[in-house]
């Protein structure tokens, strides 16, 4: 099996790993780097539960090869809260507005929100709706997620790094 060594930043921490060339980013994060907050569901890049940020852009980690993030900055839900454990505005907003139920889509929705707010700190509802339509939530009916994203923008630091 071919292997390759990659260097990237994971939630701000320089990380070097040697991975098989067919290793998926989701598996690397979940199994080797203990980022269990990255959820695997459809494994086809459809549902978005595994969404992480790669250089500020949301990607489906189930459909991204690990070698692809060589040199990149990768962010997962584990990197959102401050070092002292205090929640980021996005996290606070989802908790406060009930933007989650079973929680399985939540990590992905939070990373999607973070990516959106970095591009557009004051998104309109239509922007939010279209942006989060890349991900599936089977529980909430989305309205409370839309409100959570609006609230995150309001609390906001523009999804600061």
């Amino acid at each position: 099996m071919n292997e390759t060594t990659i260097d990237f930043r994971l939630n701000g921490t320089p990380t070097e790993v040697t991975v098989p060339t067919n290793r998926l980013l989701a598996d690397l994060l979940r199994e080797d780097l203990r980022c269990h907050g990255v959820r695997s569901s459809c494994e086809r890049g459809v549902c978005g539960a595994c969404t992480v940020l790669v250089d500020d852009l949301p990607v489906a980690s189930c459909s991204t090869f690990a070698f692809d993030v060589d040199g990149a900055s990768v962010e997962t839900v584990e990197g959102l809260a401050a070092a002292d454990g205090s929640l980021s505005p996005q996290q606070q907003a989802f908790a406060e507005c009930g933007g989650f139920q079973c929680g399985f889509c939540t990590s992905g929705m939070l990373m999607l929100t973070t990516g959106l707010l970095r591009q557009n700190p004051c998104p309109k509802r239509a922007d939010i709706r279209s942006w989060i339509s890349s991900n599936t939530c089977r529980c909430t009916g989305y309205e409370m997620i839309l409100e959570s994203v609006e609230r995150a923008a309001e609390l906001g630091d523009g999804g600061a790094r």
Partner: peptide, 19 residues
């Protein structure tokens, strides 16, 4: 108020059988 499971679920620390 918020639901009691909010902190676990918004930090990704919630543990499911898949974990």
């Amino acid at each position: 108020g918020a639901r009691a499971d909010a902190p676990l679920k918004v930090t990704g620390k919630a543990v499911y059988t898949t974990d």
